[in-house]
């Protein structure tokens, strides 16, 4: 891995972390566990389309681990990780089908997968299937949030050329 790329990845992780910390301050009107804007995933989506899968995974993992430390909520780590991994795999897979002009599509599916991973982890941890009652609501919010982050990532990918 060359130095320049490593520095860029560090920068991306840092940007993602800043977005994550700022987003924590935004209160949500609806009290649904796991519902989030997920603005930090703009960086994830960007990394999936501009970096190799391994590099994107590194950026995401570093952001999730550091983010859970900064947010003072280490128990959220499990849910972020399971959602993040599912989302990442899904998007890397979708990258084969969806070109750079339609990133928002893969971002929406990524967000929905993220919610599924989260809810599954929550069900495993709490030992009850009833948390799946929140999955439809989370899917709706995931579609909207995914569209938004996808459009943001689209703008970033369009503006920042391949190095």
């Amino acid at each position: 891995m060359d130095k320049k790329r490593l520095a860029q990845m560090g920068l991306l992780t840092c940007i993602a972390l800043i977005i994550f910390v700022v987003e924590m301050q935004i209160p949500l009107p609806v009290p649904v566990p796991g519902m989030k804007l997920g603005l930090a995933n703009i960086v994830t989506v960007y990394a999936v389309y501009r970096y190799t899968p391994k590099e994107a995974a590194l950026i995401l993992t570093a952001r999730i681990i550091l983010g859970s430390i900064f947010s003072g909520n280490p128990s959220a780590l499990l849910f972020s990780i399971s959602g993040g991994i599912l989302c990442l795999f899904g998007m890397i897979f979708l990258k084969c089908f969806i070109d750079e002009k339609h990133i928002y599509l893969s971002s929406i599916i990524g967000a929905v997968l993220h919610n599924m991973g989260q809810v599954t982890a929550a069900a495993a941890v709490t030992g009850t299937m009833s948390v799946f009652a929140y999955l439809p609501v989370l899917t709706v919010s995931g579609c909207i949030a995914g569209l938004f982050t996808g459009i943001c990532a689209q703008i970033a990918v369009n503006r920042i050329g391949v190095k």
């Binding site: 959220a76 709490t126 009833s130």
Partner: peptide
């Protein structure tokens, strides 16, 4: 909908 507190399981 269930009440869920994930941090406290």
């Amino acid at each position: 909908a269930p009440i869920v507190c994930l941090p406290n399981r």
